[in-house]
Structure formats: structure tokens, C-alpha cells
Design a protein around this nucleic acid. Structure first.
Length: 359
DNA sequence: AAATGTTTCAACCGCCCTCCG
DNA sequence: TCGGAGGGCGGTTGAAACATT
């Protein structure tokens, strides 16, 4: 291969398009269609290569281009499809009327990917990351745990007494962490388990309260218990990297709606340890909840990968229906099909809706 | 207000695939 | 069957916009 670009060495213009060029290209295609892209620039009086014209048309000038922020439904669809298709942007774009592969690719790289990473998910596999405590962060944890050991091994002196309650609380939590790191159970536990346990510790360290929505709000019984636990676990998972980022408030928007607005009895919100009303949850309680999440996430992933042959099952009905009736008249729309408007519960929706709404 | 760092996104690059003679 | 032309795609770049110091 290695074919040279069509515009190489021809003195053709590159870079941003002027409004005049846009008008020429738009007028020409509206009158004649694009036909052969290679010959189009000459016919349209443009000093551009055919590829550049094609890209400009597809990504910007096409009349059915949808502009503006991605809706929560679109985000959901992208996440679903990416989990199934990977970086097949054109295939994903075919399912999102009015969106281009380039736009989706950019949105993924600048927003969704970072969001997944910040939540402890691998953006490639869509599974929870198992390397959260790799190298540096693990060593940092151990160092902090040793610090807490040091603190607790000495009698309290005046300076220690001066320590604020926050610091003592942190030290206690770290000691617990040390216990986890040293215990035979944790030595044989999977990374995921450690991950979950530490999420809980971190939560406790910062004064968060594990909130069981079913227990606290009987109205939520309309949801299956597993679903609730699952969604709840996602709330926990969203605190996956606090050791690197203590700005928990920044993650607040990632929490499922009902978790950010729970009944006032147990404030799951991001209260600091200075809040005396915070009700602590024992680590063991927390672990039972979080560990339940492991099964749930695994099954979720399986479901996603299993549905390779029926992507419509993964899409919100509105989008599949829209794509079924939309004919863009170019090659990309050819991949769209009507399909079943059947909706499946999005594993991501609860996490992302809150955030997307803020856009 | 200026300098510096970060993020965003339009556009380009180059490889791969399909079509056709 | 082969090879070239054209189209499509995913990855990358770089300028502009925005944020922070």
C-alpha cells in the first residue's frame, strides 16, 4: 500500500475551510451531487483534494448534521455500542442520526473515555479496572498505612491531641486498610475485592454513609432488589479513585439520581467528616453491599458482549426508531436498520444521566 | 493583564477494502 | 487473477478556545 495522498504535492489548499469554500462545495453538491470525490474539486472550482471535500461535506456541511451537545440518550447509545463494537465509529454513527463518526470519536475521547476512567472503568473493555492499586498508588497506600501504625503505636501526646478529628478518623481508616492489606484473606482476594473494600474504606474515611435505598425507602421496592443493589454499587464504584482526587464533590454528579437525593435520614451526599450527623456504616456492612456489585457487573458485561448480533436490543427505542425512518442518502445510513425498538435497561444510564443533564 | 497549561474539535494522514477494467 | 483508483475508516495533529496561575 502506501498510496500517496490525493492532494500531495499539488499545491492544494489544506487547513480550515473558508465560508466561501463551504458555499462552493455546498452549492455544487446540492446541484449535482458529489459523484466522484476525486473529480469534484475541479468541477466545483475548489483548490482542495477530493478527500478533504468529502470530509468537509460529511462532517460539517451535510444538511442533516445534528449540532450541539449529546443528549443522555445519545451518550447511552454510544456507551452501549462502544462496549459491543469498540472503536467502530462509523458503525456507531450509523445508529445516531445526525451525528458523524468524527464527532462521536471526538466526544468519546474528550468526555466519555475520561468519565469512564475517572469512575474506575476501563474504557476499552468497559469493565472495572483491576489496576487501580498498581505500583505507585499501592505503595502510597502502604506508606499511609504505616503512618497510621506509627501514630497508633505511640501514646497520645500534646501534639497528637491537637490533631483534628478528621485526621484521627483518617488514621483509623488507614489502619483498617493496613489490616486488609496484611490479612490472608486479602492476600488471596482478587483485585476487584480489594478495590471494592477500599472503596468502602475511602467512603468511610470521608464520612460517607453507605445508603441502602431499599432499606431506607420502601418505595424503591418497586425495583428488584438486585437492580437496586447494582445501581447502588455503581454509586460506590464512582468513588473509585479518591486517593488521587480528593475532590469528591466533583464526582457528585456521577451518582445515580436517587442516591444523590435519598431520604434525609441517611445523607449519602458528600458530607465532610466535619458533619456530625453522618452515620457510619461498618466496613463489613459496606463490603457486603459492594461485593454484591461484582456479580452484577460481571453479568452486565456478559450481557453486553452476548448481544453482538442484535444491537437494537441495546438501544433506547427512540434512537432506533429515529434511525429507521431517517435516510441520509449517503453510505453511512446504509448500516442503519429498523430493528426492534425493544429497550433494555442501560447499565450506564443511571450513572450518566445525572451528569449528562448538566451539560 | 499576561503567561502558561489544558481541553476541544476540525481537519489531516495513511492504511485498508472494494470495485472494476 | 492482478493491480490501480477511489472511498471509507480510525488514529493523530495542531490551532483555537478556555482555564488557571
Amino acid at each position: 500500500m502506501g498510496r500517496s495522498p490525493c492532494c500531495e504535492g499539488n499545491g492544494l489548499k489544506k487547513g480550515p475551510w473558508s465560508s466561501e469554500e463551504d458555499k462552493k462545495l455546498l452549492d455544487f453538491i446540492q446541484q449535482h451531487g458529489h459523484g466522484s470525490w476525486i473529480s469534484l474539486p475541479k468541477r466545483a472550482g475548489l483548490n482542495r483534494c477530493g478527500k478533504s471535500c468529502r470530509l468537509r461535506w460529511i462532517n460539517y456541511l451535510r444538511p442533516d448534521i445534528k449540532r450541539g451537545c449529546f443528549s443522555p440518550e445519545e451518550e447511552q447509545t454510544i456507551l452501549h455500542l462502544h462496549s459491543v463494537l469498540g472503536n467502530k465509529w462509523s458503525a456507531i454513527a450509523a445508529r445516531l442520526p445526525g451525528r458523524t463518526d468524527n464527532e462521536i470519536k471526538n466526544y468519546w475521547n474528550t468526555h466519555l473515555k475520561k468519565k469512564l476512567i475517572s469512575m474506575g472503568f476501563d474504557p476499552v473493555t468497559h469493565r472495572r479496572r483491576t489496576d487501580v492499586f498498581s505500583s505507585s498508588s499501592l505503595s502510597q497506600l502502604i506508606a499511609l498505612a504505616n503512618l497510621s501504625k506509627l501514630i497508633n503505636s505511640r501514646p497520645l501526646d500534646q501534639s497528637a491531641i491537637k490533631l483534628q478529628p478528621d485526621a484521627l478518623q483518617l488514621a483509623n481508616s488507614l489502619q483498617y486498610l493496613q489490616g486488609l492489606l496484611q490479612s490472608p484473606a486479602s492476600a488471596t482476594a482478587s483485585n476487584n475485592s480489594l478495590f471494592s473494600q477500599t472503596s468502602c474504606i475511602i467512603e468511610a474515611t470521608h464520612g460517607y454513609t453507605a445508603y441502602d435505598p431499599i432499606k431506607e425507602d420502601p418505595g424503591l421496592n418497586s425495583l428488584s432488589s438486585s437492580t437496586t443493589a447494582e445501581i447502588f454499587s455503581e454509586g460506590i464504584a464512582s468513588f473509585s479513585q479518591p486517593l488521587q482526587d480528593n475532590n469528591f464533590a466533583a464526582h457528585h454528579h456521577l451518582i445515580p439520581n436517587y442516591l444523590t437525593n435519598p431520604p434525609p435520614l441517611v445523607p449519602f451526599g458528600f458530607q465532610t467528616s466535619l458533619n456530625n450527623h453522618v452515620e457510619r456504616t461498618a466496613p463489613s456492612q459496606c463490603l457486603s453491599v459492594v461485593n454484591g456489585a461484582d456479580h452484577r457487573l460481571d453479568s452486565m458485561d456478559s450481557a453486553l458482549w452476548a448481544d453482538y448480533d442484535d444491537l437494537d436490543l441495546l438501544l433506547p427505542p427512540s434512537l432506533t426508531e429515529a434511525s429507521a425512518v431517517t435516510d441520509h442518502g449517503d453510505a453511512k445510513s446504509g448500516a442503519s436498520s429498523g430493528g426492534s425498538p425493544t429497550s433494555s435497561t442501560s447499565p450506564w444510564s443511571e450513572i450518566f444521566f445525572k451528569d449528562s443533564a448538566a451539560h
